[in-house]
Amino acid sequence: MRLFITGVDADGKSCIISNDEVEINSVAPGFGIAIPYNTTQAPPPARPTGNADLIDQYLEPGHVRWMVVDQGANTETPKHHTDTLDLELVLSGSVDLILDDGAHRIEAGDMVVMTGVDHAWKAGPDGYRMTAVLIGTPAPA
């Protein structure tokens, strides 16, 4: 499993700040665990200032929504940002995560921590299904 964490570079452009393999550690016979990501404050901090359109998720800071997203083959979403921290897992298919630093191919089993930065999605040739947990964050000051 790969974990992609988004952020911004020194110029405020959206990018991947971390792309690591997630290892599941054995803690007892037949039982393993991994903690790909955790927050250190509640609600999570505000997203960086974005340049793309805001898609309002109508989710108050600290509130949580769990979604499943299906997107058909080769379809695209417009570039946008949200006032949410999204924990995403691609269940099937593939999708390009489009950030200011380029396209990143995300495949079944890969995870993304979307920190509210400017981004778009372009589904692969078979489309994709993703599950996402959205946590509301405050708007930038």
Results as ranks from 00 to 15, higher is better:
Ser92Thr: 14
Ala141Cys: 00
Thr131Arg: 03
Gly30Ile: 08
Arg129Cys: 14
Tyr37Phe: 15
Trp121His: 12
Trp121Gln: 09
Gly50Ile: 07
Val112His: 02
Pro44Thr: 06
Arg2Gln: 12
Leu99Asn: 03
Val133Ala: 11
Val8His: 05
Pro45Asn: 06
Val8Arg: 05
Pro45Ile: 05
Gly72Cys: 05
Glu60Tyr: 11
Glu107Ala: 15
Asp100Trp: 13
Thr75Ile: 04
Arg2Leu: 12
Pro61Gln: 08
His119Pro: 04
Gln57Pro: 02
Ile33Glu: 03
Gly136Thr: 03
Asn74Trp: 07
Val112Trp: 06
Arg105Val: 15
Ala103Asp: 12
Met1Leu: 08
Thr39Lys: 00
Pro61Trp: 08
Ile106Asp: 06
Asn74Val: 01
Met114Ser: 14
Ser18Pro: 02
Ser26Leu: 13
Thr137Ala: 09
Asp20Ala: 15
Phe4Met: 07
Trp66Glu: 10
Ser26Tyr: 10
Leu89His: 12
Asp70Phe: 08
Leu89Phe: 10
Ala141Gly: 10
Ala120Asn: 08
Pro36Thr: 01
Asp101Val: 03
Thr39Tyr: 00
Trp66Lys: 03
Met130Ser: 02
Tyr58Lys: 14
Ala46Pro: 12
Ala108Lys: 09
Pro48Asp: 09
Leu54Ile: 11
Gly116Phe: 07
Ile17Phe: 13
Asn19Asp: 15
Lys79Val: 11
Leu89Arg: 04
Gly136Ile: 02
Met67Asn: 12
Ala42Glu: 03
Ala103Lys: 13
His80Trp: 10
Lys13Gly: 09
Val90Ser: 00
Thr137Lys: 02
Ile17Arg: 07
Arg105Gln: 12
Cys15Ala: 15
Ser18Leu: 14
Leu134Tyr: 09
Ala103Asn: 14
Glu21Val: 14
Ser94Ala: 14
Arg47Phe: 03
Val64Lys: 11
Ser92Leu: 04
Pro43His: 01
Asp110Cys: 13
Tyr58Thr: 00
Arg47His: 08
His63Pro: 02
Thr82Phe: 01
Thr131Cys: 07
His104Lys: 12
Arg2Ile: 04
Leu3Gln: 01
Ile55Thr: 10
Ile98His: 05
Leu89Ser: 07
Asp86Tyr: 06
Phe31Ile: 15
Ala139Lys: 11
Arg2Asp: 06
Thr49Ser: 14
Asp96Val: 02
Leu97Pro: 06
Ala120Thr: 02
Thr40Gly: 10
Asp11His: 15
Val69Ser: 02
Ile98Ala: 10
Tyr128Val: 01
Cys15Gln: 14
Ile24Asp: 01
Ser18Gly: 12
Asp126Phe: 08
Met114Leu: 15
Pro45Lys: 01
Thr84Arg: 08
Gly102Ser: 06
Tyr128Arg: 06
Lys13Ile: 10
Pro43Asp: 06
Ile106Gly: 09
Ile135Phe: 01
Pro138Ala: 09
Met1Thr: 08
Gly116Asp: 07
Pro125Ala: 11
Ala141Arg: 08
Val69Ile: 15
Asn38His: 09
Gly7Ile: 09
Thr82Trp: 03
Arg129Leu: 07
Met130Asn: 07
